[in-house]
Design a protein around this nucleic acid. Structure first.
Lengths: 211, 211
DNA sequence: CCTATTATGTGCATAAATTCACAATAAGCT
DNA sequence: AGCTTATTGTGAATTTATGCACATAATAGG
């Protein structure tokens, strides 16, 4: 089934993007989609769509297209998003709170089960989502007790590495980092960075060229 | 000075990343940095650092390294972040509010000067940052009056394209999109997407492979 | 059952990005 | 000044990713 060998990183990123319009189409009752249509919805080439999918198997029907429900299921299976994940988040500033309440996470099976901060004024407070802010020194204990597998960092940059170390030490194998700084992890712990100021500077560069 | 011809997109992204540790080093009083050190701080190869910079000129001193202050200034000039930008944001949910209050924006010269929402219950409310939520039908007027150049979208996905059209119509030339959906823009309007659920699915993929 | 039509899957060509390896050059030391 | 050492800047080689173009397979119609 899976040819795996070596999957390009951009392919994984795109698979996630493919799933977005597919979910909408499925909800709207559509049954079939062509690589051309999906490509257009995602802003890539049709050949790219087919090649990305072909890394993992033959999901389409030649001369016909792709069965939306089946394709979505396959993608979710590949991405391992066909199950529930438990997350914790460290750093309960404005961004942290917004993330915890953000419904896009739960909708896709990402459930926050613990939130941490080191500020004594915040500790003990209960959020609208029902979680109570725990002190940082409980990170290890709660990660183990609750079987948390993914950690989210939304602290100020200068604290990010320390928090990351704490998470890694507690057995976390994947970190989503919102602090605008690089964090170092061992090979057995994956990191993804979300730095929107970098994106803004990208925009500024393009604007600067024309104006 | 600038050889420009064609700059790889990843190079621009990395330039922004280089500036992060440089700012910290500068504040700490460091004067010089080697490509090797900067590379290490950013998780790339030294040759990559040098090549990225070389697209725009010769900023280093052979046998010595780079003057941190000068290099940072050059990078900021390249990225056009050596000036102030005025932004607006549409969609004042949890995320939108967190973004407006986020200090990382102002610190880098990105100033929100207008915030919009279509929910009558939110319109007219004043945020901690001092801005008052305006109705969506004032977007065009305020963008022109305040000379806003960058628009941020933090609405639910199904409204994102409509909002984008409104922004484009009002003369916006760059959009930072937080809605987990692709938005279409004409060639003269740049878009950057920040979709953290995509990043999470990336993590899930890597986790799924091992567990 | 055969042919025409359609859209996938894929080997190969192209393009883009990264790394290598070394020439160029600046500074320090004798 | 000349020699040594250090690190940048860069052309060429390599690797990675994308796009093309067609063989393959499924369906529909006569």
């Amino acid at each position: 089934m899976a040819k795996s060998s070596k999957i390009p990183d951009p392919t994984i990123e795109r698979l996630a993007q493919y799933s977005r319009p597919l979910e909408v189409l499925l909800k709207n009752g559509a049954l079939l989609i062509l690589s051309e249509k999906l490509a257009e919805l995602c802003g890539v080439s049709p050949a790219q769509v087919r090649k990305d999918l072909a890394y993992f198997g033959e999901f389409g029907i030649r001369g016909v297209g792709y069965d939306i429900r089946a394709l979505l299921q396959e993608i979710k299976h590949i991405l391992a998003t066909d199950r529930e994940w438990t997350l914790c988040i460290v750093g309960m500033g404005n961004l942290g709170r917004a993330l915890v309440e953000n419904e896009n996470f739960q909708r896709r099976g990402y459930n926050f089960v613990a939130v941490f901060d080191s500020d004594p004024k915040k500790i003990g407070k209960t959020l609208p989502c029902g979680l109570t802010i725990e002190p940082a020194n409980k990170i290890r204990e709660l990660i183990r007790k609750l079987g948390i597998t993914i950690g989210v960092i939304s602290t100020p940059p200068f604290e990010a590495q320390r928090v990351a170390n704490l998470l890694i030490d507690s057995g976390i194998k994947a970190i989503l980092n919102f602090a605008p700084t690089r964090i170092r992890t061992p090979d057995n712990c994956a990191v993804e960075n979300v730095d929107f100021t970098v994106k803004l500077e990208n925009l500024a560069y393009h604007l600067g060229k024309i104006s």
